[in-house]
Measured scan of single mutants.
Amino acid sequence: MQYKLVINGKTLKGETTTKAVDAETAEKAFKQYANDNGVDGVWTYDDATKTFTVTE
């Protein structure tokens, strides 16, 4: 399945996608991506759209 990440950071904004077997695996990949880019915020997930959002 394909999952999307929407980033609403202080210095980084945008979107990225990943393919993963489940939401938990996608979340780990997205959190690593956010961490690598210095984004630390509040996470939400919408199962209907398979979209994670992180807001600083």
Score class of each variant (00 low, 15 high):
T11Q: 13
K28T: 09
L5K: 00
A48L: 13
E56H: 06
V6L: 09
D22Q: 04
T53I: 07
T25Y: 07
N37G: 05
M1S: 13
Q32W: 06
K31M: 09
L12S: 08
A26V: 03
K13D: 06
V21C: 07
V39A: 04
Y45F: 07
T44P: 00
G9F: 14
K50E: 03
W43R: 01
E27D: 05
A20E: 04
V21Y: 14
Y45D: 00
Y33P: 00
A26G: 02
T17Y: 13
G14S: 15
I7D: 01
Q2N: 10
K50T: 04
Y3T: 00
Y33V: 05
V6Q: 08
Q2E: 14
A34K: 01
Y45N: 00
A26L: 01
F30P: 00
V54L: 14
A48N: 10
T51K: 03
T18R: 07
V21Q: 13
T55C: 05
E27G: 10
T18V: 14
T53N: 05
N37L: 13
Y45M: 02
Q2L: 15
Y45P: 00
M1H: 14
A26T: 00
W43P: 00
K19W: 14
G38E: 09
G38M: 08
D40R: 13
T16E: 07
A23F: 12
T25S: 13
Y3S: 01
D36W: 07
N35S: 14
L12E: 09
K50W: 06
A29S: 11
E27P: 00
N8W: 11
Q32L: 10
L5V: 03
K50A: 08
V21L: 12
V6C: 05
T49C: 04
F30H: 02
T16G: 04
D40L: 08
Y33W: 12
Y45R: 02
K4A: 05
T55L: 06
T49F: 05
T16A: 13
A48H: 09
T44A: 10
A20V: 05
G38Q: 09
Y3H: 03
A20R: 03
N35M: 14
K10M: 14
G14F: 11
G14V: 15
A34M: 08
A23T: 11
V21R: 12
L5C: 06
N8S: 10
L5M: 06
V21I: 14
Y33I: 08
V6F: 07
N8G: 05
N35L: 15
N35V: 15
G38N: 15
T17E: 10
V42L: 08
L12C: 12
N37H: 15
F52V: 02
K4W: 10
K31D: 02
D46T: 05
V39T: 03
E27H: 12
V6N: 05
T11A: 10
D36S: 10
E27N: 05
A26H: 00
A48Y: 08
V6H: 06
T16Y: 15
G38S: 08
V54W: 02
N8V: 15
T51L: 04
I7P: 01
E27F: 14
G41T: 02
G41D: 01
Q32M: 11
E15K: 06
F30L: 06
G9E: 03
Y33E: 03
A34G: 03
E56M: 08
A20M: 04
K4Q: 06
V54E: 00
T25Q: 13
V39P: 02
T11C: 10
A26R: 00
V6S: 04
A29Q: 12
Y45L: 02
T44Q: 08
D47W: 08
Y3V: 01
I7M: 08
T25A: 13
T25I: 07
K13M: 11
T51P: 00
T17F: 13
L12T: 10
L12H: 10
D46V: 06
A48G: 12
G41Q: 01
K28W: 09
K19Q: 13
A20K: 03
D47V: 09
T11I: 11
T53K: 04
N35P: 01
Q32T: 12
G41Y: 03
V42G: 05
Q32I: 10
T16M: 15
K31W: 07
F52W: 07
D46W: 03
T53A: 05
G41R: 01
K4C: 06
A34W: 03
N35A: 14
N8R: 11
F52P: 00
A23W: 13
T51G: 02
L12G: 10
M1V: 15
Y33H: 05
A34E: 01
T55M: 05
N8C: 07
T53C: 05
T44N: 09
D36M: 10
W43N: 00
K19S: 13
E24H: 12
K10G: 14
T25D: 10
A26F: 01
V39L: 11
D46M: 04
T18S: 05
E24P: 12
T44H: 10
D22E: 04
